[in-house]
Amino acid sequence: MNVRPFTWLAPLALLACSPAQSPVSPPLEGARIGGPFTLVDQDGKRLSDSALAGRYRIMYFGYTFCPDVCPVDVQNLAAGLKLLEQSDPALAKEIVPVFITVDPERDTPAVLKQFVSAFHPRMIGLTGTPEEISKVAKEFAIFYQRGKGTTGGYLMDHSRQAYLMSPEGKPLALLPQDGAPQAIADEIKRWAE
């Protein structure tokens, strides 16, 4: 038997040069992120996760007194959703952007109302007791703690991620909230269809 050396590597080399297959399941499918909650919305009404059932959700945790990061992230998320409203209005209508505060001491419903209305007309702002916020933050794997005081008060240290959740409240993917709005719109469309 006359076999040329390494000819058996040719099929492997072709496979290695092929473009990677995109995953058929969402990257966070099966992750233990999220759970039931009942908090207070920007209108002072109790709102539970069951009120959002049947709709995709963008879940972002932050605080309104954040000097730079949270407003930029929320602005990018809202801009991504607005792009989706232009390209696929039917899908965009099924998505609810939700901002949950990690600073319930200062983020009252009135403060949240002013904050979320500056970004998107359908954005929901949620607050609650410190215990309620702690519970929902744990469910969504969000770290936060009160930082050191400054001359104007205090800052909050917190993790920053934006989750795309399914209509059943299950995690689908992380959204690139610190990227371009088009990347956010593309990622939503990729997993929410």
Rank of each mutant, 00 (worst) to 15 (best):
D49N: 05
V40T: 14
R55P: 00
A51T: 15
R57N: 02
I58R: 06
I58V: 13
L47F: 02
A53D: 05
G44I: 02
L39H: 04
G54H: 11
P36L: 09
I58F: 09
E29H: 12
P36K: 02
F37W: 15
Y56Q: 08
G30M: 11
I33M: 05
L52H: 07
A53H: 14
L52C: 07
V40W: 01
L47T: 12
Y60L: 07
A51W: 12
G34L: 04
A53W: 05
R46Y: 15
P36Q: 14
R32V: 11
E29R: 14
R32E: 15
P36H: 09
Y56I: 08
L52E: 07
R46V: 05
Y60G: 08
A53R: 15
G30T: 13
M59W: 12
Y56K: 02
M59D: 09
I33G: 00
A31Y: 13
S50H: 09
I33C: 08
A53I: 04
L39V: 03
L52R: 06
L52G: 02
R32K: 14
Y60I: 02
D41E: 05
R32D: 13
K45D: 09
D43N: 14
Y56E: 09
K45A: 10
R55D: 10
D41L: 08
F37S: 01
I33N: 02
Y60T: 04
Y56N: 07
R32S: 15
Y60E: 03
G44C: 02
Y60A: 10
D41S: 12
K45T: 07
A53S: 15
L47P: 04
S48Y: 04
T38M: 02
G54F: 13
L47V: 15
I58H: 06
G34C: 03
L47I: 12
L52Q: 01
A53T: 13
G34T: 03
R57W: 11
A53F: 09
A51V: 09
G44W: 07
G35P: 05
I58G: 08
D41Q: 11
G44N: 07
F61H: 11
F61L: 11
R55S: 12
S48Q: 00
A51H: 12
G35H: 03
G30L: 08
Q42K: 04
K45P: 01
V40H: 00
G44T: 06
F37P: 03
I33W: 01
R55W: 01
A31Q: 15
M59Y: 06
K45W: 03
G54P: 12
I33H: 00
G34N: 01
A53Q: 14
I58W: 04
T38A: 03
S48D: 13
F61M: 10
M59E: 14
S48E: 09
L39P: 02
R32P: 00
M59C: 08
F61Q: 04
L39W: 03
G30H: 11
R46I: 04
Y56P: 13
A31H: 12
Q42E: 10
S50L: 08
T38N: 08
G34K: 10
G30Q: 11
I58E: 13
